[in-house]
Computed example of a mutant assay.
Amino acid sequence: MRDWARELGFSQIGVSGVDLSSAEPLLLQWLALGYHGDLHYMERHGLKRARPAELVPGTVSVITARMPYLPRGTTPPDWRERELSRLEDPGEGVVSLYARGRDYHKVVRSRLQKLCGRIEALVGPFGYRVFSDSAPVLEKELASRSGQGWRGKHSMVLSRDAGSMFFLGEIFVDFALEPTDPVSDHCGTCTACIDVCPTGAIVAPGVVDARRCISYLTIENHGPIPEDLRPLMGNHIYGCDDCQTICPWNKYARTTELPDFDERSLLVGRRLVDLFAWDEETFLKRTEGGPIRRIDHERWLRNIAVALGNALRQADASQAPALRAALLSRADHESALVREHVAWALAQRSCPDEPAPSGGGRVDRKSP
């Protein structure tokens, strides 16, 4: 089964039992504190997340899998320096690494289905269901229990030989398999991920307040981005990798062998003003088959407007006019959400000829 998994693009598989009762108190506490924000489905599904046999009756074991997604041709560990340097260019729009290729939900699930087909050919028909961030499943809990890694202080699963740059998938099966052993925690005293988080979303080791997380704000959040968080978002326009990029263990992150996760050139290294000019038809065409499609054109413009405002605040006299012109082109947009964020962005610099503030206008992204 491990050989088949590797042939299908997975770097490791493991097995977990279905008794996750020890994880239930932390899940309930996280929900009670409101850290899930507007992810109301987290509340609706409640403890079903921690009870695989309730989600899929008859489930006896869970096969877990991880699939690396660093694009082919990436040269570890150089990618970390390259990604960090993008954050120092206010005029570039930064899309999270995982979102630059094809939608992983489809890739992971389809390959898990193929793995099930091979297993079925060997052992005969059996009951199963595959998942990848697609149902109320405690993916990270199952992954850590089955030895895929430990839960890092950024809350994601970390591996000594693969970092955290991988997708997770699960197969719920109706027959018993011997669980694989978990691994020990190797974060030690390191707090790099907590320290680097621009918005202070990692409120305790392993605990993320989604309401402050840039990934949540730019993807899951359907409404306005809180004004106090906008200056801290820098040039992130879809997702955020900061806590992963800074993690020392990600110098061991692996590249994928699948072309599905190759970077789309139109999403990498692009200027904010160019991305902001995409009309809805262009947006839909250039994000077809990718995860960015999950936000619509309206939220795409909302996110970029915030980044343009942050760039405008730092721009010198030669850069500011182009940024203002881009924003003004959407000032009368039909969407009130877009208009609000454009108005905020324009207010970050009152006059195109006004000299940039001392220090280039940079904001301490750690400050509230």
Rank of each mutant, 00 (worst) to 15 (best):
P291Y: 13
V208S: 07
L142V: 02
T199L: 12
L229F: 09
E88R: 10
E120V: 08
G289Q: 15
A345G: 13
A277H: 08
E120K: 13
V94F: 15
C213A: 04
M1L: 15
D133Q: 03
P77N: 14
T282M: 11
A277V: 05
F131E: 10
D133Y: 07
V196W: 08
I13L: 15
R102E: 12
S367D: 05
N221D: 10
I246P: 06
E83F: 14
A311H: 07
A204T: 01
D209S: 05
H40F: 13
V273S: 14
S132G: 08
L47A: 10
K114T: 15
E288Y: 13
W4A: 14
R111Y: 04
I202V: 13
V203N: 06
V203S: 04
D38F: 03
I63E: 02
S159E: 04
P76Y: 14
A162T: 05
W278S: 00
V123W: 12
Y69D: 05
F261C: 03
Q319L: 15
L31W: 01
S16L: 13
T287M: 03
E281D: 13
Q244I: 00
E280G: 01
L8F: 04
A336V: 12
S144R: 13
G91S: 15
I295K: 11
I119V: 11
V196N: 03
L84I: 08
R286D: 04
P355W: 07
R362Q: 13
V95Y: 04
C240F: 04
D274S: 15
G163K: 09
G17P: 06
E81F: 04
P68I: 00
G163C: 10
L97Y: 05
L312F: 03
L20W: 01
T256S: 14
E288R: 15
V306A: 06
D103T: 00
T282H: 10
R324S: 12
K285F: 09
G239P: 00
A143N: 01
R109N: 08
D228I: 00
L20H: 02
F283K: 02
S134F: 05
Q314S: 09
V130Y: 07
R82A: 07
R145G: 00
F166R: 11
F167N: 02
P57L: 13
F261V: 01
L308N: 10
A65Q: 08
S85W: 00
S146N: 12
D19S: 13
L232N: 09
D161Q: 06
G269D: 08
W150C: 06
G14N: 10
W344Q: 02
G289H: 10
F276Q: 08
H105A: 03
S184Q: 09
P205T: 01
I119F: 06
S85F: 00
G58C: 06
L328K: 11
A307H: 12
P136C: 07
D181S: 15
G309T: 09
A210K: 06
E288C: 10
L8I: 05
S110W: 05
E170L: 02
F166N: 02
R212D: 00
N250K: 03
Y69W: 11
G34E: 03
C213D: 01
Q113T: 05
Y104N: 03
G14K: 12
P291L: 08
I202M: 06
Q314R: 15
L229Q: 11
R2V: 15
R160C: 02
L138W: 08
S110K: 07
